[in-house]
């Protein structure tokens, strides 16, 4: 990727570390500023997790399963001419699947919230925090925290 000899315009390319050194100096300068970053990050992550929870409309999870269940039963009744029997059975199964969906979504939201809380507490140890909204949680053991 970084094969170009003159990445940052230092034509000779005599020192490949020059751009990194310059960045290091800028970071040092930033760190010496009297601004406080860490508390803001913590507040933001709490906000993030609630927003993530809101992004999942749990009602959608539920209704989708009920609709699919009811639809399956209805189609089955049409095919077998079995009156409302299959519709009723699959409607109830759909409700069960709806609860399952809601439970799984809730687990996912909880896992995400725990992840963010961990990140926030890890961030507090640092005196300078990058705005890593990408959840760049390399320190996490095996990941897959979000798996329901």
């Amino acid at each position: 990727m970084v094969s170009g000899p003159s990445d940052q315009g230092n034509g000779q390319g005599n020192d490949p570390h020059a751009p990194l050194d310059a960045l290091g100096k800028r970071i040092d300068a930033m760190e010496n500023r009297p601004s406080v970053v860490a508390p803001k990050v913590k507040a933001r992550s709490a906000e993030d997790s609630s927003a993530f929870g809101r992004a999942f409309k749990l009602s959608t999870e539920f209704v989708a399963a009920v609709a699919i269940g009811g639809g399956m039963g209805y189609l089955g009744d049409r095919v077998f001419g079995s009156g409302p029997v299959l519709f009723l059975v699959f409607f109830v199964l759909g409700v069960g699947a709806g609860f399952l969906n809601v439970w799984r979504a809730a687990q996912l939201i909880n896992a995400r919230a725990a992840e963010l809380a961990k990140e926030a507490s890890a961030d507090q140890g640092l005196d300078f925090t990058c705005d890593d909204d990408d959840g760049d949680d390399d320190g996490r053991p095996k990941g897959r925290a979000g798996r329901p």
Partner: peptide, 17 residues
Amino acid sequence: PIELISFLSRPVSLSVR
């Protein structure tokens, strides 16, 4: 059947959301 319905409802909830 419950797992099956839950699985089939994925594209619905994914798109409706």
